[in-house]
Each structure stands twice: as C-alpha cells, then as structure tokens.
C-alpha cells in the first residue's frame, strides 16, 4: 500500500468522520432555531451508549455486527435526548442556553452510567470496534448523509420548513408550518447524528473508552467547526477535514516540532477560538448568517381563551 494512503486511513479519516457527523448534526439542529449548548454532553452520551450497544450482540446473540449495534444504540439514545430538548424548548418559553447547558451535565452523567460497567467488565474494546478499513465506507456513508441532508434542507418542503422555523417560527406557524413537529424532526435527526459521531469516536477512532473522556471537550471543537462552516453541510466537509486532521495529528506535530504533549493538546482549542473569531469578524458572518431566531424562546400567544 502507498504510505500516504495508510496515513489517511489511520489518521485523517477516523477524525474527519467523527467531526463531520457531530458538526453536521449540530448544524441541522441549530437550523431549526434552537441553540445547542448540549453538544458536548450528547457527544459523550453517544460514546457511552455505543460502548453498551457494541457488547449487546455478543450477550443476547443478536445477528448484527457489534459496532453497527453500537452505532444504532448511540443514535437512538441521542435522538431521545434531541426529542426531549427540542420539544421542551418549543413548548415552553424558556432559555435555550440554560436548558442546553444543564442537559450537557446531565448527559455526561448518563454517558458514564451507560459505559462504565462495560469498560470495567470488558476492558479492551478492539474486538467490538470497526475494522481498520471500514472507516473508508463510514466516510462514504457520512458524505452521502451530508449531501442528502443538504438537498433535504435546500430542495424539499421539510427543509424549507426547518429553515423557516429557524428564521421566524411565528411567521412559519402563521403560514401553516407545525413548528413543534418540524423542530422535533430536526432535533432528532441532529442529535442522532451527534450520537453517531460519538459512536464512531470510540468504535473507529479511539477504540477505547474512559470515564474521563468527557473532559476532552471535543464536542466544543465540533461546535466551533460548525459555526465556522456556517452550518452548511457541504462547506463542513473541508472544515472538518482540516480540524480532524489537526486534532489527530497532535502526536505528529508534537514529535516533529519537539513540543510537549500539552502544547499539542492546546492547539485545537486555540484553532477553534481562532475559527470562531475569523467567522465572526469577517464577511463570512454575513454569507453564512445564523438563523435569526437562533436561541430565542418561542411563545405562541393563545388567542382563543
């Protein structure tokens, strides 16, 4: 094999798939006008749920391959969290940021509860992870998901409804869009993708899981990625490729430049901050404007009482 190809399969693709899926899910979710500060927590819950899911086939003799089951469980649990968050925030006029942040801490706890037992009982999870070359198919799948979602948002009625709800839920409701239903759809798809990304983080990239994983803050890096790419499924591809490569090449950067490990850990976060600054201070902010109702509590006045 060509050494460059090995490098891409081992280093770039796993990180790219994780970052792409998480930031893609986050983008779809925020397109519907709900500020998502729970991203890091949901990401971590996804990792724990994937670990639990990956051992289920062996225990209960389910004829599904372990990593696929892990992905299914992770997306399911994340989608439930998405259902909860988007329905609560649409039904009640409460602060999006506060709910997201609280849900983040709560889902850190859920993630530990889901993964801890498996971690202790099984130790290594190489046996239930994706094979090395599977990451190529996973990348293709994620790119297809991205393109399909792009078409969904730009070309279909549901996509138009999602954008309308994000821009102005009141006008959308007046035109006959069911705000609650649309936000739930966007929320569940979005969080399911974040859970998918979390699952791939441990089953295809790290191939290990630890309680303290939630202190890594990779969900926040994906947050910055999505913001800098303007929540656009296609623009996200190069940005997450860049970011995934940067994060996963830490050790190479470290050894090549001869810097301490902690300096290398610092680089992605500085880059995330820089990306957010570049996005906010240049014309990108106008080209990829956030949905105008992002983070605004939604309250529909009742006229009939």
């Amino acid at each position: 094999m060509i050494p460059q190809l090995d490098y891409i399969i081992d280093k770039i693709l796993p990180a790219f798939v994780t970052f792409y899926l998480v930031s893609l899910g986050h983008s779809i979710f925020e397109k519907s006008g709900i500020l998502n500060l729970a991203i890091d927590g949901v990401f971590f819950t996804g990792t724990g749920a994937a670990l639990l899911g990956a051992i289920l086939p062996t225990i209960y003799n389910i004829p599904i391959s372990p990593p696929v089951m892990g992905v299914l469980v992770a997306t399911l649990i994340a989608a439930i969290l998405g259902l909860f968050m988007s329905s609560v925030l649409t039904f009640l006029p409460i602060s999006h940021g506060a709910v997201g942040l609280s849900l983040q801490f709560f889902s850190y706890g859920v993630g530990i509860m889901l993964g801890y037992y498996v971690r202790l009982a099984y130790g290594t999870i190489y046996g239930v992870s994706f094979a090395r070359d599977d990451v190529i198919y996973l990348s293709i799948v994620s790119l297809v998901i991205g393109v399909v979602l792009h078409l969904l948002i730009e070309r279909t009625k549901i996509g138009a409804a999602i954008r309308a709800v994000g821009e102005n839920p009141h006008s959308a409701a007046a035109l006959g869009v069911r705000v609650m239903a649309i936000r739930i759809v966007a929320g569940m798809i979005g969080f399911a993708l974040i859970g998918f990304g979390g699952a791939l983080f441990i089953l295809s990239w790290q191939r290990s899981w630890d309680v303290k994983l939630f202190t890594l803050g990779y969900g926040w890096l994906a947050f910055a990625t999505a913001l800098a790419a303007g929540r656009h499924p296609i623009v996200l591809i190069p940005v997450s490729l860049l970011f995934g490569g940067l994060v996963n090449s830490q050790t190479d950067i470290q050894s090549r430049l001869g810097i301490p490990a902690d300096v290398a850990k610092l680089i992605p976060f500085l880059a995330a901050l820089a990306l957010m600054l570049i996005y906010s201070t240049t014309r990108l902010r106008r080209i990829f404007a956030s949905p105008s109702s992002l983070g605004k509590p939604y309250y529909k006045e009742e006229k009939s009482i």
Partner: peptide
C-alpha cells in the same frame, strides 16, 4: 454527582 447536578439544573431551567 453529574446526574444530580444536571437534573437540579435541568429542573430549575425548565
């Protein structure tokens, strides 16, 4: 601890 912390915050905000 995280579950308790999270659910207090969550219940409060909701």
């Amino acid at each position: 601890k995280l579950l308790m912390f999270g659910s207090i915050l969550l219940a409060y905000t909701i």
